Simulated assay, not measured.
Amino acid sequence: MRTEHLNFNTNQIQQRVDNYISQFKEGYFSPLSLMARLSEETGELAREINHYYGEKPKKPAEQENTVEEELGDIIFVLSCFANSLDIDLSEAFNSSMQKIETRDKDRWTHKE
């Protein structure tokens, strides 16, 4: 298992989001509003997953979205959240992975 820290280009993602948001006087939403927006986007992802993999097909008049689009929306909102709180997503991710790789290293059946 690879445990070195990888940079998944989150710094560039966060910078691109900041460049976009910085154009507007309103700036970033408050953390509470961003949490609501993240919940909304997560619900939209759940709806798409249900349409593609669940028992609830789309209605003929419903807009065609994709799981990829909804995941992109979530990445955007997470980047807004992190930027507004001055959090480096790469550092947050690496910290989380270190915790998971340590805590859960023997939790699952390893492949041969």
Rank of each mutant, 00 (worst) to 15 (best):
R37S: 10
L45S: 04
D104A: 10
N83G: 03
T102H: 14
E48R: 07
C80W: 10
E70F: 06
Y53D: 05
E4Q: 05
Y52E: 15
I21E: 00
N9R: 12
A36F: 06
D73F: 11
Q63C: 04
I74G: 02
G72F: 00
T10S: 06
S84R: 10
K99I: 12
T3N: 09
L45A: 06
I13N: 06
P31G: 02
E4Y: 07
E68Q: 11
T3S: 09
K111V: 12
S30W: 13
N19S: 02
Q14E: 04
D86K: 14
K105C: 09
Q98L: 09
S22K: 01
L45Y: 10
F93M: 09
D106H: 09
F8L: 14
V77R: 02
Y20T: 14
N94Y: 00
A46R: 08
Y53I: 02
K56F: 14
D106A: 06
E55T: 14
S90A: 12
F93V: 13
L78W: 13
L89S: 05
F81Q: 14
E64H: 08
S30D: 15
Y53Q: 07
G43Q: 08
L78D: 09
S39A: 13
F29N: 10
F93D: 09
E112N: 13
E26K: 08
M35C: 15
E69S: 03
G54F: 00
F81K: 14
S84Y: 06
D73E: 08
V77C: 06
H110F: 00
I21Q: 00
L78V: 10
S90G: 03
N19I: 00
L89I: 14
A92E: 12
K56D: 15
T66S: 15
G27V: 07
S39N: 11
T3Q: 07
I87H: 07
E101F: 10
F8D: 07
N83P: 00
I100V: 08
E91M: 04
S39D: 13
Q12L: 05
P31T: 03
Q98N: 11
S22A: 04
F76P: 01
D73V: 01
N9Q: 12
E112P: 15
S96E: 15
L71P: 03
S39V: 08
Q15M: 04
F8V: 04
P57G: 03
W108I: 14
Q14G: 00
F76Q: 14
K111I: 14
K58N: 07
P31R: 10
I100K: 10
V77Y: 06
D88W: 03
I74N: 00
E101T: 10
K111N: 15
G54E: 04
E55K: 12
S84M: 05
R103T: 13
K58A: 09
N83R: 01
F24Q: 01
D88H: 04
Y28M: 02
S22R: 02
N94W: 02
P60G: 06
P57F: 03
L45F: 12
D104G: 00
E64T: 08
Y20R: 13
A61R: 11
K25R: 13
R2E: 08
H5F: 10
H51N: 15
E70V: 00
E101V: 08
V17Y: 02
D73S: 08
N11S: 11
L71V: 15
F76A: 08
N11Y: 01
R47Q: 15
E69Q: 09
T109I: 11
G72Q: 04
S79V: 04
D86Y: 08
S79N: 06
E4T: 13
V67Q: 05
P57K: 07
D106E: 15
